[in-house]
Structures are given as C-alpha cells and as structure tokens.
Amino acid sequence: MGTIISMRGVDKYFGRFQALNGIDLDIAEGEVVCVIGPSGSGKSTLIRCITLLENFTAGEILVDTVPVREGRELELVRREVGMVFQSFNLFPHMTVLRNVMLAPIRVRRLSPAKAEERARDLLIRVGIDEQAQKYPSQLSGGQQQRVAIARALAMEPKVLLFDEPTSALDPEMVGEVLDVMRALARTGVTMVVVTHEMGFARQVADRVLFMDGGAIVETGTPQQIFDSPREERTRAFLKAVLHH
C-alpha cells in the first residue's frame, strides 16, 4: 500500500520552545497509528501540523503527495483529512443532523437530500440516529464525540486524525467512543490517534509511536512497544501510566 502521510524533518517552535524536533514519519494507507507519550511531548502538535492548524517551522509534510502549505493545496489536504478534537467542537447552533450535513453540502457540493441521506447513515453507524434533531448541548459527552466522528466521516476523508478523543469524557463514556473508533479501524480508513488509552492502542493500532520532548523516541508494533520497549524513556513512561 502507498504512503498517505509523509513528514520530513518537521520542526515546530512556539516562540523559543521547540515542540517538534526533526520529525520523519511515513504512514501507509489504511494504517492505524497510535501516538502515545507524556503531555507536552508534541503528540497533539504533530497531528495539528498535518492539517496545518499549526504552522510548522521547517521541513515538509505531504498528504497523498500534496504538500501541506497555505493556499490552493491546503483546500485539497483539508478535504482528505478529517479531525476529531478532544473538546468535540460541534457547532452548538445547529442540530446534530445539520452538523454532519454542513461540510458535504458546502465543500463537496452535495445536494441537501444526498447529504442528509449520508448523514443519517453515519449517525446510525455511530448509534446517534435517534438524536438527529437535537442540539449538541442536549447530548452527553460521549454522544457528542460520536457525532463529531460522524461529522468528520461525512467528508469521506482518506485520513482521520484523533486528538485525545476520550480525554474530556467521563470514564463511563470512554468505552462507547472507543467502540466506534475500533469499528472504524476495521474499515480501512487511515487513522492517527493521539491517546492515553493504552488498552485501545495495544488492541487496535498497527503501529505505536512513543514521543517525548518533541521527537519520536520509539516506534513499533504494539507488542514491541508495550511488551519489550527498547528505550529507557519508553519504559519509564509505560511504567508510570500502566501501574498507577
């Protein structure tokens, strides 16, 4: 399978703080990659650079061979890359259905009827079809996040980025969101998931990246990373998160 995301020598500075340090990364089409690491390690910055929510300072990112940069190319990239945020970021003044329909109508120029059909199918898929006419504030956090996933899927992206999708949820709602993501991983969409859910990473990821200090410290299959990490920093991190 071809490479869908390619990062070469990507640096990102916030003022004098270096958030990303020479990131080289290739992600294959259909691959599910989980990014783990301590907070402040650059995980979120990494995926935010892929869709240019953060301007990277140096290096190059290609999404499906299109360079990620301001201008005409960015439109192409953003059509192909969906993102799910920690804080859901649903549009509060629109119904759930309208949230999912908006971008296909505006960006893909779908007819409202076609967009609604697609939106309803997706809401069934994430188990929110009965709440289609409600507003986001009437839903639980877990439901809102599932709507956000449906909204991202409605653009039929080639790549889905997840920025700590369960971190803002009450513990009893984490499972329902992870279930949806697990099902999604089996459909062949490329996923890059920044997460603190080690169980999910171990079970669903094709590859796990461990980041620290703005760099990718270690990468491998879940078995390699969780069962026999090579790097001392990886061991220390896993020890801290798995035995608390």
Binding site: R78, M83, N89, L90, V107
Partner: peptide, 22 residues
C-alpha cells in the same frame, strides 16, 4: 471558542463559509 474556527477549517470550509455558517 478557538475550537469552532478549527473544526470549520478542518472540515474544509472556506473562510467566508466558516464566518457565515459557523
């Protein structure tokens, strides 16, 4: 909130669409 701008951008909405719709 900043997240509203980000969600609109990531969905591919143009700047005028983001302002008018979101």
């Amino acid at each position: 909130p900043k997240g509203q701008f980000e969600a609109a951008k990531v969905l591919g909405l143009s700047w005028p669409q983001m302002m008018v719709d979101v």
